[in-house]
Amino acid sequence: MPADTALPNPAGAAPAGGRELIRLDQVTKRFGGTTVLDRLDFTVDPGKHVTLIGPSGSGKTTILRLLMTLTKPDEGTITVDGEQLFPASEKERREARKKIGMVFQQFNLFPNMTVLRNITEAPVTVLGLSRDEAEVRARELLDLVGLADKCDARPTQLSGGQQQRVAIARALAMRPRVLLLDEVTSALDPELVAGVLDLLRDIARSTDITMLCVTHEMNFARDISDQVLMFDAGRVIESGPPEKLFGDPEQERTREFLSAVL
């Protein structure tokens, strides 16, 4: 792995002892003839906020989808909190998956349920909470995201920004250890972006949840990240704290990318 050993501070910088929460070992993912991820290694420590940046098609979103088990790696192992996601049986994967939550670009709220039900359904069905417990938890979360009055609304009655905040509440209701954020503001009208990002900053500050974030909002990435990984062609070409990576990138490719998006 010449490209990785060249990094001054490999992502996560976990000690060999392995207290890391997320670990990818030699993960390769191909779509048809294209190699999207090429023998990727990285780790994320508990409580850290890691942002993945890079040109589109560089494999950032694929990493989130692999961690959410929405797609399978062709090679390599992925471990979350000591439990293996790949390779593993479907049953083991379902257990490990409970530690991971995801917020999607397109929100993906369930239109056949009210806002409250969107948030309570999985805690009741998957975690076995009583409906009352789940509703208490859901109302707290709706309060947190500023939508306490929308319990009985349908997702279709909400703006994009409101829907995304409900989706964040829905993911948090499962009390995941890891929250995956996949370009969560890309589908929003520009004036709605700030509200969602402020909420995520809040959550990043006030909880110990580990975040893995794919975004094009560089200011947001700078604010919340402990670590930024620059992807290109399925590999991490540079990683480091945001001040370093945004302020004084080492790789020419990173500089090009940043000057194009900033």
């Binding site: 959410m68 409970k98 995801m102 993906n108 999985a122 998957v126 993911a171």
Partner: peptide, 25 residues
């Protein structure tokens, strides 16, 4: 597809996804 993926992300089994998410929609 995003509806099914949200169901996976929330930990529903395939049968639960079908009954609670896919068929009602």
């Amino acid at each position: 597809q995003g509806q099914r993926e949200a169901g996976v992300a929330l930990g529903f089994t395939p049968a639960q996804r079908l009954r609670k998410i896919v068929l009602p929609q």
